[in-house]
Design a protein around this nucleic acid. Structure first.
Lengths: 128, 128
DNA sequence: CACGGCATTTACGTAAAAGTCAATCGATCA
DNA sequence: TGATCGATTGACTTTTACGTAAATGCCGTG
């Protein structure tokens, strides 16, 4: 496991801009350390970026991603806080389950659409 | 099956504003008919709205949703167009499969986070 | 030491997707 | 007939998530 990644390494790996990484830092999603003024990204920062990109692909906003990231962190020490966190996690999971239903339905409709296209090709006498 | 829905009926059903429905009309995603100036939404418009909301939850942009909706329509009559459409459909499906992987990974991490919370509660001697 | 290349900060810009507000119109109820 | 309710249009505003530009810092190489 590498100790540090440069900002450009991460921009290449995740196909995002430096601006985007600095933006995520401003938003408090990642906390790269500094050597002088230069940012040094540790493996945990890299992993966070990976999680952020996943969240983005799933259509979560920065705020929602921030919430999700909170959940991955060490669980709090107090009972009330723990129960609250469990509740929040359950909510997010329900959210994700809805997305999964949406996803399966969309996939099914696309399957259907593709079949219709293929059938149409057959009608037109195209040798597959 | 109802013949027409009013704009407010649909805003209530989908929990969106009238502004949003008009916006979708401006964007050409739906084409409600008119009685005078009043919009009348047919079942097909309602179904389109349902598909739009699904797309939104999955993080697709309006343009992407527009593309997807195109794919649900009648397949074109020309062979080149049909092959192009099949290619586009396959791309979208790959996109959705990526989302599905993201989704499963996120769900797994949330499961993990919840377990950690529950364990912590046990450590604290909370009777479940 | 000058230079190229990467990095930084600050500041302003922008596209997408609506929200909000004001003025108006038309149908209907009392 | 006047008031009220729902709908419409148009203009302006807002939020999110960065993009872009300008000016400058840091550093290894020849």
């Amino acid at each position: 496991m590498r100790e540090y990644y440069s900002i450009t390494e991460l921009t290449r790996e995740f196909d995002i801009s430096t601006r985007t990484l600095r933006f995520y830092e401003d938003e408090g999603l990642i906390q790269p350390v500094r050597r002088g003024r230069t940012r040094l990204f540790r493996p945990t920062d890299r992993h966070l970026v990976k999680q952020i990109m996943r969240g983005k692909r799933l259509g979560f906003s920065i705020n929602e991603i921030r919430e999700i990231i909170q959940m991955y962190k060490e669980p709090p020490g107090e009972v009330g806080q723990l129960n609250l966190m469990i509740k929040r996690i359950e909510e997010k999971r329900e959210d994700l389950r809805q997305k999964r239903r949406d996803l399966e339905e969309t996939l099914a409709e696309l399957d259907h659409a593709e079949e219709a296209c293929v059938e149409r090709l057959v009608e037109l006498g195209v040798t597959t």
